[in-house]
Amino acid sequence: MNKILILPVLMLLLGTPAIQAQDSSPKKIGLAIGGSASTNGLGFSVIAALNRSIAVRVGYESLTQSFAEPFVYGIEDIDFNITPNIKVGGITANVDFYLLKGLYLTGGVVQTNFDLGVNLIPKDPMKIGEIEYQPEDIGELNVKILPERRLSPYAGLGFGRTISRDKKLALNFELGAYHMGSYVIDMTGTGLLQGNSDNASVKRINEVLSDFSWSGIYPVAKLGLSFRIF
């Protein structure tokens, strides 16, 4: 965890005035608006260039996807219709530090909307005793993978520019990751499956998950385009 935090903190440190002072270009300040497509969804951002080496980006990204056609999975002789739901994205605030004209490091924070879930509804009527219950009478299960913390540090390496130095348009490609502490599995149920809301086995899995070094890391690959206003 500490290792992961080093990079964004370092990025912010690199953005201090002392280091910025090395850039003596006459065109320092600039403002751009941009759009992006990434593993964190589609988004828009406002980019402010503080000088030729430092830019600050604030934006919002979102990806929400539901699947109309469920697939079937059996758990203990009960077939469930499983419908995944994906929600990623969030508000981002990053500082881009240019190592070269078209290569930059970026770091910041994300207030993530991360929420990967599956909804499980019994596929068929089910007999309890000799009484047959319809799926809606049995209830449903919702299993989610949530972040341990929603405000997460982010670090990445980018190619191109998030705001152009001399032209109106700029293109960038960025690889990075944010770290949400750990993945946390949350299981809730309704009806006869309501008892899964405090399922002890889920608690055990979460304990194990929290020990994994990679748990809570969400990789980001992003393609961005920006338009410099001034």
């Binding site: 758990i75 086995s201 055990r204």
Partner: peptide, 24 residues
């Protein structure tokens, strides 16, 4: 440790994950 962690997680899910069902 990603690969071995996934194995560990898979085993845990297979062996320990239980489905809780209430009676009506």
């Amino acid at each position: 440790t990603f690969t071995e962690d996934i194995d560990k997680l898979t085993n845990l899910a297979t062996d320990s994950l239980s489905l809780v069902l209430g009676t009506p």
